[in-house]
């Protein structure tokens, strides 16, 4: 037991590494927020474009979504991070990770928003258009508000699952939470920083996970 505490919760290691861990946590939060905001916005934008029913554009969106759903994010991170400099385009590692994760989130979010829009019955469109509402107004005031309840729970869960991938930053040297921890582990030959990192992730993501389950229950109850 003592050995366990010594390896995973070593007081002197905690004392010497917590500032590093904290700065890593800040970068993780920063990265996560950028991914969430841009990814969701772009996903919604794509779903809205899709409502215009322009065949070529819709096909392009479907291909984009499918590819980003099928490719592991780490594959894209490696291709962009190690490939682009060789053609003369160097992006900072933070930007690479942000770009990849935001695109992945956008793809999943587009699917979810689109399914939500499809689930609104045609009569709602008919009613709104028959009173003279424009297409954008119908979307904004009649259709989208009705999708929130259906869309929010899967959207939150998906967002968490994708945002957690900020930990992949450690592979390309983004000084985020996991990266700070693994660096400290190899310096100190002690697993405590890893434990601190795990706790850091829990602090960031457990509240969001709980929020997601709460949403799910609330909306499931309302439906019944």
């Amino acid at each position: 037991m003592e050995r366990f505490v010594d390896t995973f919760f070593n007081a002197s290691v905690i004392a010497s590494t917590w500032p590093k861990i904290l700065s890593g946590m800040l970068i993780t939060v920063e990265l996560a927020l950028s991914v969430v905001v841009t990814g969701l916005a772009f996903g919604l934008f794509l779903a809205l474009i899709r409502t215009a029913q322009i065949r070529l554009l819709n096909a392009a969106i479907v291909v984009f979504v499918d590819v980003l759903r099928a490719l592991p994010p780490l594959v894209m991170v490696l291709i962009i991070y190690f490939g682009l400099p060789n053609v003369g385009l160097t992006l900072p590692s933070f930007a690479v990770l942000w770009l990849v994760l935001a695109a992945v989130l956008a793809a999943f979010a587009e699917e979810i928003f689109w399914a939500g829009i499809l689930s609104v019955r045609r009569g709602q469109w008919d009613a709104a258009r028959s009173t003279g509402l424009t297409f954008p107004d119908t979307l904004a005031f009649v259709v989208l508000p009705q999708t929130i309840r259906m869309v929010l729970p899967p959207l939150v869960n998906r967002t968490i699952a994708i945002t957690k991938n900020t930990a992949l930053g450690t592979v390309i040297g983004v000084p985020e939470l996991l990266n700070q921890a693994t660096t400290a582990v190899s310096f100190l030959s002690n697993a405590t920083p890893l434990m601190l990192a795990a706790i850091g992730y829990l602090i960031i993501f457990v509240p969001v996970v709980l929020f997601g389950s709460w949403l799910e229950q609330r909306f499931a109850f309302r439906k019944a």
Partner: peptide, 12 residues
């Protein structure tokens, strides 16, 4: 004005 068989009121 148009009135539909299924009312089509905005539920929200």
């Amino acid at each position: 004005g148009m009135v539909f068989q299924s009312f089509n009121l905005y539920p929200h």
